[in-house]
Nucleic acid binder design. Structure first.
Lengths: 191, 191
DNA sequence: CCAAGGTTTGAATGATGGTTCAATTCTTGC
DNA sequence: GCAAGAATTGAACCATCATTCAAACCTTGG
């Protein structure tokens, strides 16, 4: 019974994610989520007090998954240059794999309460990158700089560069390599 | 009479801008705009077919003003390094002067139809910057690169770096200089 | 001055979609 | 089996605004 409850909760989140991946946040009415989760509209409210709470958690879940994937890929590398390349490749590869979801997570207009969760998402990326940058500065691989600011700017650059390709559905073949070059230069990787 | 008509139209746009600057897009109900413009709600619809059309124009107007100010400041400089510095200083200076408006123009959740206008805004900045970068590459002041991608990434970096300070109301004293350093390095200005 | 035409008004309308809740169905302990 | 209690249902409710429109009000040409 407890299990049934928590299973329902999970089904709701999964359903919401699936609809986001297919039709964006715009397609995520509570009724649509409930239907896809195989339950009545009202039942959603047995698990989440409001729609905003539900989607805050949905965003948190999806964001965590993305950040984890990127962190895992970057952790395999040992130089800052390679770590940052891994971040960009993983981030953009996954985004292009589920463009609608990426668009929703990154920039689609959402309820302001959910928007707040998006900031957390972007900050999580920034924290991850800031760590690598700080290590690079400490080891002398990178010139002195404010790792927080560098990381923030880098997340912005990455997100902005992906918005066009996400809308189009594909990225030009030189987009990712160019972006890597740009960002390597930006953090001061010696050529 | 014609004058009266076009004056009303202007009053509506000005009112919308003022409310955006004070309470963001969230505060911009048609009723609120009409009241501030000193007319009845329904009269707004004698000038704009829908709210989305009104705010598309409001965004276009505000964006144009911003881009013009930045372009004017950059045009006074003669090296790419100085031009880009002028862009960053002007952009961030103006944003911090009207943080609520800047937040609305840059990232606040808005009606999807209005959101499209935001892309135009960001692209206008990118075009401006791309022009300078392309000239710098041609003159040899900058290393070879894709000016479009560089400019897009740069706009993203700039916007992202401002979101935190905009929410807080102020930027730390080193934010702008650090950002300039970062972006100079990113485009390949020789030190 | 006056009537015809256009303009302005602001309360009513309507659409959307989140939220509630009385009725029903299911689960569980005895 | 069988209540008692919890969970589920989904249609009704409600709040929010954008949008409309019939009535009231100007403006202007004669």
């Amino acid at each position: 019974m407890k299990a049934r409850l928590s299973a329902s909760r999970d089904r709701i989140i999964v359903a919401a994610l699936e609809i986001m991946a297919g039709h964006g946040y715009a397609g995520c009415s509570v009724a649509a989520v409930a239907e896809r989760a195989g339950m009545a509209t009202g039942s959603v409210y047995r698990h989440f007090p409001t729609k905003a709470d539900l989607f805050a958690e949905v965003f948190r879940t999806a964001s965590q998954r993305e950040v984890d994937a990127v962190a895992r890929a970057a952790a395999l590398e040992s130089t800052v240059a390679a770590q940052v390349s891994a971040v960009i490749e993983t981030f953009s590869g996954r985004a292009l794999q589920s463009p609608r979801l990426a668009y929703a997570l990154l920039v689609e207009p959402v309820d302001p309460a959910v928007d707040a969760e998006r900031l957390v998402f972007r900050r999580a990326y920034a924290e991850l990158i800031a760590g690598y940058v700080a290590a690079g500065v400490a080891s002398g691989e990178l010139p002195p700089q404010d790792p927080e600011l560098t990381a923030t700017a880098l997340v912005g650059a990455l997100a902005e560069a992906m918005v066009g390709p996400l809308a189009a559905g594909v990225a030009g073949p030189s987009t990712i390599p160019s972006l890597i070059t740009f960002i390597h230069r930006a953090i001061g990787v010696s050529p």
